[in-house]
Amino acid sequence: MGIPHSNGDDFNCYRRRDGGNHEPLFVREPIDTQRVLAAVANDAAGANVLFVGTARGITDGVLTSGLEYEAHESMAADNLIQLRAEAVSRFSLAACAVVHRLGKIAVGEASIAIAVSGPHRHAAWRAAEWLMEQIKKQTPIWKCEYRPDGQREWSHPGSMPVGCASEEHEP
């Protein structure tokens, strides 16, 4: 059953800017990964890390023909901005950029690009990994997997998003 997209007039969320990071948080076209990397260029940086998550064509032996992502865009934007700021502080980064694609994407295309820059490589590696883990745990974005036979399934692993009030109040 098809459901209309949740966000349309929220388009400004795609273009939210903050703190000198001029990359959009969400795009519906292929991510320009080199642009994301270039966005974190900084004279104070000796390390630049770019992580690109791509759509797999097979998971645990099950074929996937494509993916679709949707988000609560205003909440996801707030969360990504907060995570970026926390990453900069926690890992003493020079700059940090995150771009997530929404809508349908083909196998092999990028679903997310994370770029960080900092004085040293160890912190930069860890920062990119930390950001990816946090996004997968708490950012209100969802993935739907399409099968070659036309079936599709939304992925809702685990429990409530990390950081939500109910999750925090659980014993």
């Binding site: 098809g2 459901i3 997209h5 949740s6 966000n7 949707e70």
Partner: peptide
């Protein structure tokens, strides 16, 4: 259809009338 362009959001919808909750669902 999920393949259609985005059209509306909870934030963008007209304000609900009093005594009404507007509930928005996502994904599955």
């Amino acid at each position: 259809s999920t393949s259609q362009p985005v059209h509306a959001s909870a934030q963008a919808m007209p304000p609900p009338q009093s005594e009404i909750l507007r509930i928005t669902f996502f994904a599955g």
